[in-house]
């Protein structure tokens, strides 16, 4: 399951809308081992294409170095599909190389209503996972609102 703050979802969707009809891409970094997306990094799509994306290699190196300095890792890798459903394409699967990352796809094919889904891609096998959007990580997983956490 991907647990993610609403402002980060909004940032991905805004980036996807801004670059439409080209595909948008980026990452969300988080503390190493936390599985918690925190720092939003929009990347340039070096392909500038409605059907492909590729991180600009120099920008990717800069972001990699920043993450190393901050003890961060890639928690989310996102990109948009601008004319098709938000499901990983064959190319997406062949390039997927972060077994611990959440691969988020956003479809902007409908101008009014975006679609957002998250997947794990491990050894070429795609597994969709639920997405829980939260206001803050502090209060995530404390149980349903009608069940008090403390007696």
């Amino acid at each position: 399951m991907l647990v993610i703050r609403r402002d980060l979802v909004d940032a991905m969707v805004a980036h996807a809308r801004r670059d439409h009809p080209d595909e948008a891409c980026g990452i969300i970094a988080g503390p190493e081992g936390s599985d918690r997306p925190e720092r939003f990094v929009a990347m340039d799509n070096a392909e500038r294409s409605p059907t492909f994306y590729r991180f600009d290699s120099m920008e990717q190196l800069r972001v990699h170095r920043e993450m190393e300095r901050n003890d961060e890792e890639t928690v989310v890798v996102y990109h948009s599909h601008t004319a098709t459903e938000p499901y990983p394409s064959r190319t997406d699967i062949s390039y997927a190389s972060e077994p611990n990352a959440h691969y988020v796809l956003i479809s902007t094919r409908d101008p009014e209503q975006h679609e957002l889904r998250s997947y794990r891609i491990v050894d070429g096998v795609v597994t969709e996972e639920p997405v829980e959007v939260v206001e803050s990580y502090m209060f995530a997983h404390t149980g349903a609102d009608d069940t008090p956490d403390c007696p």
């Binding site: 392909e47 994306y53 590729r54 991180f55 290699s57 120099m58 990699h64 890798v77 990983p88 390039y95």
Partner: peptide, 29 residues
């Protein structure tokens, strides 16, 4: 700090003390 695709590919020169960084290309359709 140089992407070897723009610096000779496999023939890119490497000298003592250099750092070689390998990253997975992030791409798709």
């Amino acid at each position: 700090d140089e992407d070897v695709r723009f610096a000779g590919g496999l023939e890119a020169a490497v000298k003592d003390g250099d750092t070689v960084t390998i990253l997975p290309a992030v791409a798709g359709g």
